[in-house]
Amino acid sequence: MNRIRNLQGPALILALLALLWIIVILVLLVLKPSVFSLATVTTILQFSTILALVSLGQAVVILAGGAGIDLSVGGIVSLSAIASMLALKLGLPSFLLPPACILAGAALGAFNGVLVTKLSILPLIATLGTFFVYSGLALALTGGAAQSGVPSWLLIWGRGVFSGIPVPFLTIAIPFFAIAGIVLMWTAWGRWIYAMGFNERSARLVGIPVDRARLILYGLSGVLSGAAALVSLAWLGSGRPNIGQNLELESLTAAMLGGIAILGGRGGVGGVFAAVMLLVTLKTGLLQLNVNTVWQVGIVGALLVFVLLADRLSQYWR
Protein backbone atom coordinates (compact mmCIF):
# COMPACT_ATOMS: atom_id res chain seq x y z
CA MET A 1 0.00 0.00 0.00
CA ASN A 2 2.78 2.36 0.98
CA ARG A 3 4.58 1.76 -2.26
CA ILE A 4 1.49 2.64 -4.21
CA ARG A 5 1.15 5.77 -2.15
CA ASN A 6 4.70 6.71 -2.90
CA LEU A 7 4.15 6.49 -6.61
CA GLN A 8 3.93 9.88 -8.22
CA GLY A 9 4.10 11.70 -11.49
CA PRO A 10 5.19 9.60 -14.45
CA ALA A 11 5.49 6.41 -12.42
CA LEU A 12 1.94 6.77 -11.13
CA ILE A 13 0.64 7.45 -14.61
CA LEU A 14 2.48 4.44 -16.01
CA ALA A 15 1.15 2.23 -13.23
CA LEU A 16 -2.34 3.57 -13.80
CA LEU A 17 -2.17 3.01 -17.54
CA ALA A 18 -0.84 -0.51 -17.08
CA LEU A 19 -3.62 -1.24 -14.62
CA LEU A 20 -6.26 0.14 -16.98
CA TRP A 21 -4.78 -1.83 -19.82
CA ILE A 22 -4.93 -5.06 -17.82
CA ILE A 23 -8.52 -4.27 -16.87
CA VAL A 24 -9.44 -3.75 -20.53
CA ILE A 25 -7.76 -7.03 -21.46
CA LEU A 26 -9.41 -8.90 -18.58
CA VAL A 27 -12.86 -7.57 -19.39
CA LEU A 28 -12.37 -8.60 -22.99
CA LEU A 29 -11.10 -11.99 -21.89
CA VAL A 30 -14.27 -12.62 -19.92
CA LEU A 31 -16.71 -11.18 -22.45
CA LYS A 32 -15.13 -12.35 -25.66
CA PRO A 33 -12.16 -14.69 -25.47
CA SER A 34 -12.04 -15.01 -29.25
CA VAL A 35 -10.57 -11.51 -29.40
CA PHE A 36 -7.18 -12.82 -28.42
CA SER A 37 -5.79 -13.87 -31.71
CA LEU A 38 -2.62 -12.88 -33.48
CA ALA A 39 -4.76 -11.03 -36.01
CA THR A 40 -6.07 -8.74 -33.27
CA VAL A 41 -2.55 -7.90 -32.15
CA THR A 42 -1.62 -7.11 -35.74
CA THR A 43 -4.68 -4.93 -36.11
CA ILE A 44 -3.98 -3.02 -32.93
CA LEU A 45 -0.39 -2.33 -33.92
CA GLN A 46 -1.39 -1.42 -37.45
CA PHE A 47 -3.78 1.25 -36.25
CA SER A 48 -1.32 2.41 -33.58
CA THR A 49 1.52 3.23 -35.93
CA ILE A 50 0.31 6.58 -37.23
CA LEU A 51 -1.03 7.73 -33.87
CA ALA A 52 2.15 6.62 -32.10
CA LEU A 53 4.41 8.58 -34.43
CA VAL A 54 2.33 11.74 -34.25
CA SER A 55 1.90 11.49 -30.48
CA LEU A 56 5.65 11.18 -30.01
CA GLY A 57 6.16 14.47 -31.85
CA GLN A 58 3.38 16.10 -29.87
CA ALA A 59 4.92 14.80 -26.63
CA VAL A 60 8.45 16.17 -27.18
CA VAL A 61 7.09 19.56 -28.21
CA ILE A 62 5.02 19.78 -25.02
CA LEU A 63 7.85 18.37 -22.92
CA ALA A 64 10.18 21.18 -23.97
CA GLY A 65 7.88 23.73 -22.34
CA GLY A 66 7.39 27.32 -23.33
CA ALA A 67 3.65 26.55 -23.53
CA GLY A 68 4.61 24.16 -26.32
CA ILE A 69 1.88 22.37 -28.22
CA ASP A 70 1.43 21.37 -31.85
CA LEU A 71 -2.14 21.58 -33.11
CA SER A 72 -1.00 21.31 -36.70
CA VAL A 73 0.19 17.68 -36.61
CA GLY A 74 -2.91 16.39 -38.39
CA GLY A 75 -2.54 19.10 -41.01
CA ILE A 76 1.12 18.20 -41.52
CA VAL A 77 0.22 14.53 -42.02
CA SER A 78 -2.40 15.41 -44.64
CA LEU A 79 -0.34 18.02 -46.44
CA SER A 80 2.93 16.09 -46.58
CA ALA A 81 1.09 13.06 -47.97
CA ILE A 82 -0.58 15.23 -50.59
CA ALA A 83 2.47 17.36 -51.40
CA SER A 84 4.70 14.35 -51.98
CA MET A 85 2.08 12.63 -54.15
CA LEU A 86 1.63 15.79 -56.19
CA ALA A 87 5.40 16.01 -56.59
CA LEU A 88 5.32 12.43 -57.88
CA LYS A 89 2.76 13.48 -60.48
CA LEU A 90 4.97 16.39 -61.50
CA GLY A 91 7.79 13.99 -62.28
CA LEU A 92 9.56 13.25 -59.03
CA PRO A 93 11.27 9.84 -59.37
CA SER A 94 9.26 7.35 -57.34
CA PHE A 95 12.22 6.21 -55.22
CA LEU A 96 12.37 9.73 -53.83
CA LEU A 97 8.80 9.58 -52.52
CA PRO A 98 9.71 8.52 -48.94
CA PRO A 99 12.36 11.22 -48.40
CA ALA A 100 10.12 13.81 -50.07
CA CYS A 101 7.26 13.00 -47.75
CA ILE A 102 9.39 13.21 -44.62
CA LEU A 103 11.14 16.32 -45.87
CA ALA A 104 7.79 18.00 -46.50
CA GLY A 105 6.83 17.20 -42.91
CA ALA A 106 10.14 18.57 -41.66
CA ALA A 107 9.67 21.81 -43.57
CA LEU A 108 6.11 22.31 -42.32
CA GLY A 109 7.20 21.55 -38.76
CA ALA A 110 10.16 23.90 -39.05
CA PHE A 111 7.81 26.65 -40.20
CA ASN A 112 5.91 26.17 -36.92
CA GLY A 113 9.23 26.41 -35.14
CA VAL A 114 10.06 29.68 -36.89
CA LEU A 115 6.70 31.17 -35.95
CA VAL A 116 7.18 30.15 -32.34
CA THR A 117 10.85 31.00 -31.82
CA LYS A 118 11.64 33.79 -34.28
CA LEU A 119 8.28 35.59 -34.28
CA SER A 120 7.47 34.68 -30.66
CA ILE A 121 3.87 33.77 -31.50
CA LEU A 122 2.47 31.56 -28.76
CA PRO A 123 2.59 27.90 -29.88
CA LEU A 124 -1.14 27.31 -29.35
CA ILE A 125 -1.99 30.17 -31.69
CA ALA A 126 0.83 29.67 -34.19
CA THR A 127 -0.03 26.01 -34.68
CA LEU A 128 -3.77 26.75 -34.66
CA GLY A 129 -3.06 29.03 -37.59
CA THR A 130 -0.93 26.46 -39.40
CA PHE A 131 -3.53 23.78 -38.59
CA PHE A 132 -6.05 25.76 -40.64
CA VAL A 133 -3.51 26.48 -43.38
CA TYR A 134 -2.03 22.98 -43.74
CA SER A 135 -5.23 20.97 -43.53
CA GLY A 136 -7.01 23.53 -45.70
CA LEU A 137 -4.27 23.45 -48.34
CA ALA A 138 -4.34 19.66 -48.51
CA LEU A 139 -8.06 19.82 -49.38
CA ALA A 140 -7.94 22.91 -51.57
CA LEU A 141 -5.01 21.74 -53.71
CA THR A 142 -6.74 18.45 -54.53
CA GLY A 143 -10.39 19.50 -54.40
CA GLY A 144 -10.74 16.61 -51.95
CA ALA A 145 -9.74 13.89 -54.43
CA ALA A 146 -7.52 11.06 -53.26
CA GLN A 147 -4.15 10.95 -55.03
CA SER A 148 -3.44 7.47 -56.31
CA GLY A 149 -0.24 6.09 -57.77
CA VAL A 150 1.84 5.04 -54.79
CA PRO A 151 4.58 2.75 -56.20
CA SER A 152 3.89 -0.90 -55.52
CA TRP A 153 7.22 -1.57 -53.81
CA LEU A 154 6.18 0.88 -51.14
CA LEU A 155 2.94 -1.03 -50.59
CA ILE A 156 4.92 -4.20 -49.88
CA TRP A 157 6.62 -2.38 -47.03
CA GLY A 158 3.46 -0.62 -45.84
CA ARG A 159 1.23 -3.67 -45.76
CA GLY A 160 3.84 -6.20 -44.77
CA VAL A 161 3.55 -8.15 -41.53
CA PHE A 162 6.54 -9.75 -39.88
CA SER A 163 5.63 -12.47 -37.35
CA GLY A 164 2.41 -10.71 -36.46
CA ILE A 165 3.89 -7.23 -36.26
CA PRO A 166 3.19 -4.76 -39.07
CA VAL A 167 6.44 -3.82 -40.79
CA PRO A 168 5.97 -0.01 -40.56
CA PHE A 169 5.45 -0.35 -36.81
CA LEU A 170 8.60 -2.42 -36.55
CA THR A 171 10.76 -0.30 -38.82
CA ILE A 172 9.59 3.23 -38.02
CA ALA A 173 7.55 3.52 -34.84
CA ILE A 174 9.71 1.33 -32.61
CA PRO A 175 13.05 2.84 -33.69
CA PHE A 176 11.75 6.36 -33.25
CA PHE A 177 10.46 5.61 -29.77
CA ALA A 178 13.67 3.82 -28.82
CA ILE A 179 15.85 6.68 -30.03
CA ALA A 180 13.62 9.29 -28.38
CA GLY A 181 13.69 7.35 -25.12
CA ILE A 182 17.48 7.00 -25.17
CA VAL A 183 18.05 10.63 -26.10
CA LEU A 184 15.71 11.90 -23.42
CA MET A 185 17.07 9.72 -20.67
CA TRP A 186 20.76 9.43 -21.30
CA THR A 187 22.05 12.34 -23.30
CA ALA A 188 22.76 15.99 -22.61
CA TRP A 189 20.16 16.83 -25.24
CA GLY A 190 17.53 15.03 -23.24
CA ARG A 191 18.50 16.85 -20.07
CA TRP A 192 18.31 20.15 -21.97
CA ILE A 193 14.79 19.39 -23.10
CA TYR A 194 13.65 18.57 -19.57
CA ALA A 195 15.45 21.63 -18.21
CA MET A 196 13.80 23.88 -20.80
CA GLY A 197 10.43 22.52 -19.91
CA PHE A 198 10.97 22.61 -16.19
CA ASN A 199 12.27 26.14 -15.95
CA GLU A 200 13.00 28.02 -19.10
CA ARG A 201 14.70 30.96 -17.41
CA SER A 202 17.29 28.94 -15.62
CA ALA A 203 17.78 26.84 -18.74
CA ARG A 204 18.68 30.02 -20.62
CA LEU A 205 20.90 31.15 -17.75
CA VAL A 206 22.98 28.00 -17.84
CA GLY A 207 23.51 28.54 -21.53
CA ILE A 208 21.12 26.07 -23.17
CA PRO A 209 20.29 27.34 -26.68
CA VAL A 210 16.56 27.21 -25.91
CA ASP A 211 15.31 28.79 -29.12
CA ARG A 212 17.42 26.67 -31.41
CA ALA A 213 16.48 23.51 -29.54
CA ARG A 214 12.81 24.40 -29.71
CA LEU A 215 13.00 25.11 -33.42
CA ILE A 216 14.55 21.69 -33.94
CA LEU A 217 11.87 20.01 -31.82
CA TYR A 218 9.04 21.54 -33.88
CA GLY A 219 10.91 20.35 -36.95
CA LEU A 220 11.16 16.91 -35.37
CA SER A 221 7.44 16.86 -34.72
CA GLY A 222 7.05 17.65 -38.41
CA VAL A 223 9.42 14.82 -39.35
CA LEU A 224 7.38 12.39 -37.26
CA SER A 225 4.15 13.60 -38.85
CA GLY A 226 5.79 13.26 -42.26
CA ALA A 227 6.77 9.70 -41.36
CA ALA A 228 3.17 9.05 -40.32
CA ALA A 229 2.06 10.40 -43.68
CA LEU A 230 4.45 8.03 -45.41
CA VAL A 231 3.03 5.10 -43.43
CA SER A 232 -0.47 6.12 -44.52
CA LEU A 233 0.62 6.28 -48.17
CA ALA A 234 2.31 2.92 -48.09
CA TRP A 235 -0.56 1.32 -46.25
CA LEU A 236 -3.61 2.74 -48.00
CA GLY A 237 -1.99 3.00 -51.41
CA SER A 238 -3.10 6.56 -52.01
CA GLY A 239 -2.69 10.01 -50.54
CA ARG A 240 -5.87 11.30 -48.97
CA PRO A 241 -6.31 14.97 -48.22
CA ASN A 242 -8.04 14.40 -44.87
CA ILE A 243 -5.90 11.55 -43.59
CA GLY A 244 -4.73 13.61 -40.61
CA GLN A 245 -8.24 14.60 -39.52
CA ASN A 246 -8.61 14.58 -35.70
CA LEU A 247 -4.99 13.55 -35.17
CA GLU A 248 -4.29 16.79 -33.27
CA LEU A 249 -6.91 15.92 -30.67
CA GLU A 250 -6.01 12.24 -30.54
CA SER A 251 -2.27 12.86 -30.20
CA LEU A 252 -2.89 15.47 -27.53
CA THR A 253 -5.06 12.99 -25.67
CA ALA A 254 -2.38 10.31 -25.94
CA ALA A 255 0.38 12.64 -24.75
CA MET A 256 -1.68 13.90 -21.78
CA LEU A 257 -2.86 10.41 -20.91
CA GLY A 258 0.75 9.30 -21.11
CA GLY A 259 1.68 11.64 -18.31
CA ILE A 260 3.30 14.50 -20.22
CA ALA A 261 2.63 17.61 -18.14
CA ILE A 262 0.99 20.30 -20.24
CA LEU A 263 3.43 22.87 -18.84
CA GLY A 264 6.39 20.77 -19.88
CA GLY A 265 9.38 19.29 -18.12
CA ARG A 266 7.65 16.19 -16.82
CA GLY A 267 6.83 12.86 -18.44
CA GLY A 268 8.47 10.30 -20.67
CA VAL A 269 7.99 8.60 -24.00
CA GLY A 270 7.23 5.26 -22.33
CA GLY A 271 4.04 6.71 -20.97
CA VAL A 272 3.08 8.05 -24.38
CA PHE A 273 3.67 4.64 -25.95
CA ALA A 274 1.57 3.00 -23.25
CA ALA A 275 -1.19 5.56 -23.72
CA VAL A 276 -1.32 4.98 -27.48
CA MET A 277 -1.52 1.23 -26.89
CA LEU A 278 -4.25 1.69 -24.30
CA LEU A 279 -6.27 3.96 -26.57
CA VAL A 280 -6.09 1.67 -29.58
CA THR A 281 -6.66 -1.48 -27.51
CA LEU A 282 -9.67 0.14 -25.89
CA LYS A 283 -11.09 1.17 -29.26
CA THR A 284 -10.46 -2.30 -30.66
CA GLY A 285 -11.99 -3.95 -27.61
CA LEU A 286 -15.12 -1.83 -27.84
CA LEU A 287 -15.40 -2.59 -31.54
CA GLN A 288 -14.94 -6.31 -30.94
CA LEU A 289 -17.70 -6.23 -28.35
CA ASN A 290 -19.81 -4.34 -30.87
CA VAL A 291 -20.30 -1.45 -28.50
CA ASN A 292 -21.73 1.51 -30.39
CA THR A 293 -18.86 3.74 -31.50
CA VAL A 294 -20.50 6.81 -29.96
CA TRP A 295 -19.23 5.61 -26.60
CA GLN A 296 -15.61 5.64 -27.76
CA VAL A 297 -15.16 9.40 -27.72
CA GLY A 298 -16.91 9.69 -24.37
CA ILE A 299 -14.94 6.91 -22.73
CA VAL A 300 -11.64 8.32 -23.99
CA GLY A 301 -12.64 11.79 -22.76
CA ALA A 302 -13.69 10.49 -19.37
CA LEU A 303 -10.47 8.51 -19.15
CA LEU A 304 -8.46 11.66 -19.80
CA VAL A 305 -10.30 13.57 -17.07
CA PHE A 306 -9.95 10.61 -14.72
CA VAL A 307 -6.19 10.30 -15.21
CA LEU A 308 -5.73 14.05 -14.73
CA LEU A 309 -7.75 13.97 -11.52
CA ALA A 310 -5.88 10.90 -10.28
CA ASP A 311 -2.58 12.64 -10.91
CA ARG A 312 -3.86 15.66 -9.00
CA LEU A 313 -5.28 13.62 -6.15
CA SER A 314 -2.02 11.73 -5.74
CA GLN A 315 -0.46 15.03 -4.74
CA TYR A 316 -3.09 15.57 -2.04
CA TRP A 317 -2.49 12.17 -0.47
CA ARG A 318 1.03 13.07 0.44
Binding site: L252, T253, V294, I299, G301, L304, L309
Partner: peptide, 27 residues
Amino acid sequence: AVIVLGRVPAIVGTLGLFGVYRTAIFV
Protein backbone atom coordinates in the same frame (compact mmCIF):
# COMPACT_ATOMS: atom_id res chain seq x y z
CA ALA B 1 -16.24 21.86 -11.32
CA VAL B 2 -13.80 19.63 -13.19
CA ILE B 3 -11.31 22.37 -14.14
CA VAL B 4 -11.38 24.55 -11.04
CA LEU B 5 -12.03 22.07 -8.25
CA GLY B 6 -10.00 19.33 -9.89
CA ARG B 7 -7.22 21.85 -10.58
CA VAL B 8 -6.79 20.43 -14.05
CA PRO B 9 -5.20 22.49 -16.85
CA ALA B 10 -8.13 23.99 -18.75
CA ILE B 11 -7.01 22.95 -22.21
CA VAL B 12 -6.63 19.29 -21.31
CA GLY B 13 -9.64 19.12 -19.05
CA THR B 14 -11.97 20.64 -21.61
CA LEU B 15 -10.50 18.32 -24.25
CA GLY B 16 -11.63 15.40 -22.10
CA LEU B 17 -15.05 16.96 -21.52
CA PHE B 18 -15.31 17.56 -25.27
CA GLY B 19 -15.33 13.80 -25.75
CA VAL B 20 -17.83 13.23 -22.95
CA TYR B 21 -20.24 15.92 -24.16
CA ARG B 22 -19.94 14.66 -27.70
CA THR B 23 -21.08 11.20 -26.69
CA ALA B 24 -23.92 12.83 -24.78
CA ILE B 25 -25.07 14.52 -28.00
CA PHE B 26 -25.05 11.22 -29.89
CA VAL B 27 -26.93 9.46 -27.11
